[in-house]
Simulated assay, not measured.
Amino acid sequence: MFSDAGRLVGVALLGVQVWLLLVLLVRLMPGYSRRPPVAPRRTPRTDTTVTVMVTTLNEVHRVGPCLDGLMQQQEPLLEVLVVDSRSTDGTRELVEAASKRDPRIRLVTDEPLPPGWVGKVWALENGLREARGEWVLGIDADTVPAPGLVGAVIDAVEQDGYDVASFSPQFRDQTPAERFVQPAMLTTLVYRCGAAGATQPPPDRVLANGQCFLARRELLLAHGGYACARNSWCDDVTLARHLAANGARVGFLDGSKIIQVSAYASLGEMWREWGRSFDLKDATPTWRRWLDVALVWAVQGLPLPVLLVIGTMVAAGVVDPIHSANAMLWQALLLVNGSALFIRLFMLWALRGSYAERGWSFWFSWLADLAASWRLTLSTAKRPKAWRGRSFESLPA
């Protein structure tokens, strides 16, 4: 017979899951009318100018395809500033060789890193001081821009009247292990902030992607450049939310057709490097991050285990979901967790365009939801102290 304690646990779990499932549905509903992926622009534009900024620190094995993609861009691209933090692996020589092929590419060395700044954010700040374009477009060194990207992002922001916009990429060159775990981690972001291309959320829920981040140069300068995100581990989201809170119109759009990213070499590197910041620390109050952790566990991490436990108990004759005194509780738990699992499986179909290669590991990535929930919990509980070989022990919390 099912104990009173077990009944109380079931009722409490059901109450939490029902509430957080409703929260999730409210967040996901705008995604049904989201804008389709931004398409590359095939013809040049001469009515505006764009400065692309690429930050580098020992990126010789990754920055080449990025520079090749940028050299294929037409107007409105004005210049490409590669802001290097004194690389020692041949990155600088590679960039200088590229600049001889395309004079729009220029190597810039950032100033020594001051206290209280994360290295990448400081490099972006140095690039902003050198930029001459009406717009500045931050591009990560591990991305591959498609021909027509620069014109396409300008078209996109003008269409919707954005002052700032970032674009989600298409992931490529992932190992099967990465394709098994990373989509589950990505789903937590959608659950917490909504889908790319959906209507603009409140400023404190704005999502951004620093791998392709566009903003009006004068707007950035008017708001202190990148200083608001100087010590942030999720500088892109911190900056976007700061600008949105101060009246800028900020968009997050699907850029899977205009930019690809090959960010990590293994599951371990992805788990460590992306996991350090994907809880959106520094851009989200602590209480809200922990509420998001609860949401992810309730509607993503736990539904499959709950269904398996109930199924095992039914098979063993421990519970009867039809004729027992607690039949309504069991039926409600089955309905809620079954609905959450259905939504999760639907997310696979919705996210399929974000992956250049999929295969069986992508389609079974929902089995990694427990791991993704646990990684989010670890990231929320612990603040990182190092990144890309640099120590940031002195950064304030």
Rank of each mutant, 00 (worst) to 15 (best):
D4A: 14
L13M: 15
L22N: 11
R27D: 00
M29P: 00
M29Q: 14
P30I: 00
P30T: 01
G31V: 04
G31E: 00
Y32P: 01
Y32D: 08
R35K: 11
P37A: 10
N58V: 00
E59S: 08
H61S: 11
C66Q: 02
L70G: 00
Q72H: 06
Q73R: 02
Q74T: 10
E75T: 14
T88Q: 14
E93K: 06
L94H: 08
L94Q: 09
A97N: 12
S99V: 06
S99Y: 00
R104N: 11
L107I: 09
V108C: 10
W117R: 05
G119E: 12
K120R: 14
W122M: 01
A123T: 13
R129Q: 13
E130M: 10
G138H: 12
D140E: 13
A141G: 07
A141D: 11
A141T: 05
T143P: 00
P147R: 05
P147C: 09
G148C: 10
L149A: 02
V150H: 00
G151Q: 07
A152F: 02
A152G: 06
I154M: 00
A156V: 06
V157T: 13
G161K: 07
V164W: 02
S166D: 05
Q174R: 11
Q174I: 03
T175C: 06
V181D: 00
P183Y: 07
M185K: 08
L186V: 15
T187E: 12
L189C: 03
V190D: 01
V190L: 03
A195Q: 13
A196G: 05
A196I: 05
T199H: 09
Q200K: 10
P203C: 09
D204R: 10
R205G: 08
V206L: 08
L207R: 10
N209I: 12
G210W: 09
A215P: 05
L219Y: 01
N231T: 11
W233Q: 01
T238K: 08
T238N: 00
A240G: 00
A244P: 01
N246R: 14
V250G: 02
G251T: 01
L253A: 04
D254F: 03
S256Q: 10
K257R: 15
Q260W: 10
Q260E: 14
V261P: 03
R276C: 08
R276Y: 10
D279C: 13
D279P: 00
A283E: 02
T286M: 12
W290D: 06
L295K: 08
V296K: 01
W297G: 09
A298N: 07
G301D: 04
L302Q: 07
V306Y: 09
G311V: 04
T312R: 15
M313Q: 14
I322D: 06
L335A: 14
N337L: 03
G338C: 07
L341P: 01
W349N: 12
A350P: 02
A350W: 13
A350N: 11
G359R: 04
S361Q: 08
A368F: 08
W374C: 08
L378V: 15
A381R: 14
K382L: 13
P384S: 07
P384C: 09
W387I: 11
W387A: 14
R388I: 04
G389R: 07
E393Y: 09
L395P: 07
